[in-house]
């Protein structure tokens, strides 16, 4: 690769002042692309984790009645129905302390359940791959346990996944716009280079140079600048990602899910500079070929 970049060029492209800013622009764009892509990959992973965690579980809620002795009867009836349902692997009644803990973010610290009538919650896990008809279970429970309801988390999950997909779409658009900005910048830089070196290019043409011979020199230069800027952007982006990860890790896990990149995510992020450099190279080559096609 070093030999490739060290090749002699017939055009003094490495001395062009106008192209000196290109690596910095590309570095900035790769920096943004690193953040956008990392965000997209992390959200994807979070959505998958939530999906796996929530699918196959449901929660049965029994609203508190005016007569507390009724609550125990309702609970027993509900457990009987759950026990007779084949798709259910196991179930567990949540303690009042755990229910209070779940309510704490909204209601603040409550000394004990006597101060507030609490619903009875039952955590239910289904057999792996089991297909339970939540509506039918709800009907069976409602018939024998007034005030009961079944939450299979589907609505909540669908809304969450929808939100994540929207953010992912935005991140993809950001990546697309970054790619377009790279293309635009390289086109501008290449056209300026063509104008500056028009005289030399004309001489090359007149001694028999093919358009591809001239385009190769611009493409090689764009590849080198793209790689330089891309690596710079990556070097700036990775510490930023790590800093974000550190700050998120310090926050309460209840509010924010665990955000981290898997090994192959890092590989994808690491390939961004190569991708941007290739875009720069192809853009420069295409721009030169199109411009030269207008010359004799």
């Amino acid at each position: 690769m070093f030999k490739f970049f060290a090749r002699r060029s017939d055009l003094p492209l490495d001395r062009d002042a106008h192209s000196q800013f290109l690596p910095w622009l590309i570095a900035f764009m790769v920096f943004l692309a690193v953040l956008a892509m990392a965000g997209m990959l992390m959200l994807n992973a979070v959505a998958e984790r939530w999906d796996q965690g929530v699918t196959g579980t449901l929660t049965v809620q029994i609203a508190p009645s005016e007569d507390p002795s009724e609550d125990d009867i309702r609970l027993r009836n509900a457990l009987t129905i759950l026990a007779s349902t084949k798709a259910i692997d196991r179930y567990e009644v949540m303690s009042d302390a755990r229910v209070l803990k779940l309510l704490e973010p909204w209601l603040g610290g409550i000394a004990n359940s006597d101060e507030l009538p609490l619903p009875r919650l039952i955590d239910v896990e289904l057999h792996s791959g089991a297909d339970l008809d939540a509506a039918q279970l709800t009907e069976r429970l409602a018939a024998r346990v007034p005030g009961s309801s079944v939450d299979d988390h589907r609505v909540w999950l669908e809304r969450l996944v929808s939100l994540i997909r929207t953010v992912q779409t935005l991140a993809t658009m950001v990546l697309f716009f970054i790619a377009m900005a790279t293309v635009g910048t390289v086109i501008f830089t290449t056209r300026t280079g063509l104008a500056i070196h028009r005289e030399a290019i004309e001489v090359l043409h007149l001694i028999g140079a093919q358009d591809s011979y001239i385009a190769r020199q611009f493409a090689r230069r764009a590849l080198a600048l793209g790689l330089t800027g891309g690596l710079l952007g990556l070097v700036l982006g990775i510490p930023t990602l790590m800093a974000i990860g550190y700050l998120v890790g310090r926050m309460d896990g209840f509010l924010l899910p665990s955000l981290h990149l898997a090994g192959y995510h890092w590989i994808l992020v690491g390939l961004l500079p190569v991708g941007v450099a290739l875009i720069a190279m192809i853009t420069a080559r295409t721009t030169v070929l199109r411009s030269l096609a207008k010359m004799l």
Binding site: R8, D10, P12, R15, A200, V203, L204, I207, G208, A209, Q210, Y213
Partner: peptide, 17 residues
């Protein structure tokens, strides 16, 4: 081409070929 040496200027037609 002023940025090239005399050698590289003369070499151009061979190199482009």
């Amino acid at each position: 081409l002023n940025h090239l040496s005399a050698f590289d200027n003369v070499a151009l037609p061979l190199r482009v070929a």
